[in-house]
Design a protein around this nucleic acid. Structure first.
Length: 534
RNA sequence: GCCCCCAUAGCUUAAUGGAUAAAGCAACUGCCUUCUAAGCAGUUGAUCCAGGUUCGAUUCCUGGUGGGGGUACCA
């Protein structure tokens, strides 16, 4: 029985005496100085609400939970809850025998599309893409773990001026002539120019920019895909902006808005009227020169997300795009969709720290740092762990020197070390003839140390729920560091292998297997490897 | 001007409105003849200011102060 299942069971039991208020019941993890397995503020809330005594509420709950073999005590209004050993034993055997113990039925009809990274296809992926990739992939994995249907999508802006400029820049590199003003200066185009086929001479002669654009796009996208793959991330779909135009979706969307009376004509341009309360100004859909804006195309793209049947639409954007949120929501609403089903996760911008120097990342100042360079200098694991350690609201400072250090100073290795240390103990036990496939706790008396570990394991699911609630994986990362700490501490005090006491040995191996399962599961969800040996 | 994010220990951060605010780094003190010392045990150390809501506020609200970002017929 998982935590959420137990919580539901307790709620159901309590509803016998509190039919009106049972929905207010929830359990929380007690602070570390409280020995209880769980606690609830139910008595405080219900007593206050109904003008009755806390002690009276407690009495009834206590009787209810007693029938489940759960004991309670009243502590200053809070109710501390103590589980019987069977609850933990049941949980442990559950997670060790199921590949997906945390799937919840009520989540399976949630069809989520999450769009992230979506970098311009005009150059290599860099730092901002790395954080987007880390956040998006981990959130997706966690949602899937809880039973959501999740579709990961990358939007490719392969249309517009920038693509033409990319083609012009490549042509310049090919013919070794000065780059156009506002051209792409990166050295990657020199490399791509070297790969151009012989026929490119023909293209150059005819000034066929499109050929160069197409070639550059193909090369860059391939590289981006490869970078992401090495970062442990694959998308379910790459959606090309050019498809919107080919299929007339942008035009159709404009027409739809006009039909709905949402478009205003002024100064030769077409403007989107603002939906009430969502935005205080109007935005251009079609410029006076007849070209569609990025906004219109993006709106058309988001329309497809609704029409493809997703009922939760999540985008991950950098904080520098926050101004775009209100007009997108407004536009979506003007199209007749439910804008509350559209959520944007904003992540703050990043600085990198090398030595004691903090470099602000920006294209303008030329402090580029590509995902590829970053992976070569540190590692996929280090980057993904770092970027999922903090809330997206935090202005992250990525300390390269710290990320590179393979020591205890880096919490990544602290967690991985716990995993491989457990593996080592299990291997040793196996070598000494213990059957490590057996999971057996029945002949074992739980000590205080054991209960601390069990408690931590049991609350794993809550941290996953919190990640989805806040749309941030950092709760999971924090949890893993805490669990690793509990394990290392437990390990020092509790010898596992004891050939004179096989019952204890097998029980402790079972406990270690449960810890290992949880760390592995958590690291998997973060896209970080869990080494068997270090 | 308007909009968004942030402010917690010397530093980087954590804390579904809950109990004695939690980690890592840095500093200091101990622990390897037993399962991995990439480890453990311990010491020092913090909620920007002023109000408000609440049984209870680091958390919510208002107003300050300080930092970052945004505010295109760019994408």
């Amino acid at each position: 029985m998982t935590l959420s299942e137990l919580e539901s069971l307790m709620r159901k039991t309590i509803s016998k005496n509190f039919p009106e208020d049972a929905h207010l019941f929830s359990i929380t993890e007690p602070p570390s100085h409280i020995k209880a397995d769980a606690s609830t503020n139910f008595a405080i809330i219900v007593a206050k609400k109904n003008g009755i005594k806390i002690a009276d509420v407690y009495k009834k709950i206590s009787d209810n939970l007693d029938t489940l073999g759960i004991s309670t005590e009243l502590a200053g209004g809070f109710i501390n809850i103590y589980f019987g050993k069977n609850i933990y034993a049941n949980y442990i055997s559950g997670i060790l025998s199921s590949s997906s113990p945390f799937i919840k039925n009520e989540n399976t009809d949630k069809k989520v599309i999450i769009e992230f990274v979506s970098a311009n296809p005009t150059g290599p992926l860099h730092l901002a893409s790395a954080i987007s990739a880390s956040l998006g992939d981990s959130i997706s994995s966690i949602m899937k773990e809880l039973g959501y249907t999740v579709f990961k999508e990358y939007y490719v802006n392969d249309a517009g001026n920038q693509v033409e400029m990319l083609g012009r820049s490549l042509l310049s590199r090919y013919t070794n002539t000065p780059l156009p003003e506002d051209g792409y200066h990166g050295e990657y185009l020199i490399e791509i120019a070297k790969k151009l086929p012989d026929v490119a001479a023909e293209w150059a002669k005819n000034n066929d920019i499109k050929k160069f654009s197409d070639f550059a796009l193909k090369e860059i996208l391939e590289q981006q895909k490869k970078d992401l793959e090495d970062f442990g991330l694959t998308f379910d779909n790459w959606f090309f902006e050019s498809e919107l135009h080919k299929k007339g979706i942008s035009d159709e969307t404009l027409k739809l808005l006009e039909d709905r009376g949402a478009v205003e004509y002024r100064d030769g341009a077409k403007w989107l009227k603002s939906a009430d309360n969502l935005i205080d100004k109007e935005n251009v859909l079609v410029k006076s020169n007849g070209l569609k804006t990025y906004f219109l195309n993006d709106l058309a793209y988001h329309r497809t997300k609704y029409e493809r049947g997703f009922n939760w639409i999540i985008d991950i954007w950098g904080a520098d795009h926050h101004g775009h949120i209100s007009r997108m929501k407004s536009g979506v609403k003007m199209l007749g969709f439910d804008e509350t089903k559209f959520t944007v996760i904003l992540h703050q911008l990043i600085s990198i720290k090398r030595g004691s120097e903090i470099l602000k990342m920006s294209k303008r100042s030329g402090t580029f740092y590509t995902l590829r360079e970053m992976m070569e200098e540190t590692s996929k694991d280090a980057i993904r762990f770092f970027f999922t350690m903090r809330s997206p609201d935090t202005h992250i400072i990525f300390d390269i020197d710290l990320a590179k250090k393979q020591t205890s100073e880096n919490p990544l290795y602290y967690v991985q070390y716990a995993h491989s240390r457990i593996n080592s103990v299990i291997e040793n036990a196996k070598a000494k003839g213990f059957d490590t496939d057996i999971s057996e706790l029945s002949k074992y008396e739980l000590s205080d140390d054991d209960r601390i570990i069990f408690k931590k394991l049991f609350w794993f699911e809550k941290s996953l729920n919190q990640c989805v609630k806040d749309l941030s994986p950092h709760h999971l990362t924090t949890y893993l560091i805490e669990l690793a700490k509990e394990f290392h501490s437990y390990y020092e005090r509790n010898r596992v292998i004891d050939e004179t006491n096989p019952d204890t040995t097998l029980a402790r191996i079972t406990i270690l297997k449960a810890i290992k399962f949880t760390i592995k599961k958590g690291l998997d969800l973060l896209g970080v490897s869990a080494p068997e040996r270090m």
